[in-house]
Computed example of a mutant assay.
Amino acid sequence: MRSTIFAFALGLLASTAAQADVTVYSAGPGSLINDLAKGFTAKTGIKANVFQATTGKVMARLEAESSNPVADVVISASWGTATSFAAKGLLLPYTSPNAETVPDFLKTDTAVAQGVAGICIAYNTKSGLPVPKDWADLAKPEYKDMVTLPDAAASGGTYSLVEAFAANDMNGVLQSIKDNGAIVAGANAAALNPVLQGSKAAVFAAVDYITLGAKAKGESVDIVFPESGTVVAPRPMMILKSSKNQDDAKAFIDYVLSEEGQKAVAKVYLMPSRTDIKVDRPLIGDLKLLSSEGAPARDAVLDGFKAIFN
């Protein structure tokens, strides 16, 4: 009798372990993380609990829970999160077998990109103005007072571009669009909305997947990746060393990097991290990328941006 009860108990524990939940904190599109969680559960039988918010709110929640960690996996909109967390020893080393075709600059031993956003020019296709081909085109007379841009202090993508401009001695471009009447409108959505509404014609440093999503909904907007170069913003996935469900967390990373998971990433107009996933949009290999090597420290970059845009 005892052996029967013992065997039953072991079976129950094994079943419980197999169905253990994984908790994912994610910045970025809510539809994406919800689709990934649903697909992961269907594939593995493991429930994925999701907290979706801005990167700032995700970081605040992690900080509030630091004495009793809850999250297993964190997905940020800023690669700087992965760098910072790794430096603090907060991350579990893991390399997914599905990361083989992810370029080296999109992965480390403790983080891998879920997908990648590109920084571009977004323009209103009904503005009647020439389609811009490079950043400096937005300083031309026809674009006077018709350009917005996100605040580098509020938008990680804009900060990355401004950082690259500083590293490549391109701050004169920022000054020229400021002199042409460009205005800092706030975060990404605040900069894009006037262009969607037609009161402005273009966004300097728009986020590609947000703009392409608006285009897919029928808005009169499209994107251009400037000829002189741009930057991309990888979205790192990380397993916290404090995770109590490390095997399930690894399985979640594997799923996101599977063909099915990467197609879900592409569905919201992000670039897949894997180079073997083909989608009908510009990919990293199609872009000229600006290096940020040699850029000043973050505070100095932001001080330079503020000095130009008051």
Rank of each mutant, 00 (worst) to 15 (best):
D145H: 10
V58K: 00
I46R: 03
A164T: 11
G198E: 05
P194Q: 08
Q246S: 12
P97S: 01
N180Y: 05
P69R: 10
I308T: 08
A87G: 08
P97N: 10
V102R: 03
D303T: 15
D299G: 09
T81G: 04
P272F: 03
P132S: 04
I253R: 03
A18G: 03
A64H: 01
Q262D: 15
P132Y: 06
D254F: 04
D299K: 14
L91F: 14
W135M: 10
K47F: 12
A113W: 07
I277R: 02
S243F: 12
S3N: 14
K43I: 08
V112L: 11
I75N: 04
A297K: 10
F165T: 02
D276F: 05
M146G: 09
A166W: 06
G128V: 15
D151Y: 08
F165Y: 06
F225Q: 01
A205I: 01
K217D: 09
M146A: 11
P29A: 11
S78D: 15
C120P: 04
S3F: 15
D145L: 07
I119D: 06
P103V: 06
K144G: 02
L174D: 03
F8Q: 15
M59S: 10
D254R: 07
A189H: 11
A189E: 15
A113V: 14
L32N: 07
L92F: 14
D21I: 07
V24K: 02
A152V: 02
A42M: 07
S243R: 03
G128W: 14
T16C: 02
T158L: 05
I183H: 07
E100I: 15
V301K: 02
T55L: 05
N310M: 01
S242G: 12
I33K: 01
T23R: 09
S76Q: 04
K144L: 08
K267R: 14
G39N: 08
S160W: 05
Y159S: 00
K140S: 13
L302P: 06
V116L: 08
L129V: 14
G80I: 02
K250Q: 15
L212N: 09
A113I: 03
S273W: 02
S160M: 04
D109I: 11
K43L: 07
I177H: 04
D208L: 02
N180R: 09
Y25R: 00
L196A: 02
T101C: 05
T275W: 03
V256E: 04
P236W: 04
L32M: 11
E142N: 10
L10C: 15
I75A: 01
M170N: 02
A297D: 15
T83P: 00
Y123K: 10
I183A: 01
G56N: 08
A7T: 13
L196P: 00
L196E: 01
K57R: 09
G285I: 06
P103M: 10
I177R: 03
D303R: 08
Q175C: 04
G304K: 06
A201H: 08
I33G: 01
S160C: 07
I277F: 01
V74P: 03
N193A: 06
G186E: 07
G218A: 00
R61K: 07
M271Q: 10
S26V: 06
V70S: 07
A86Q: 15
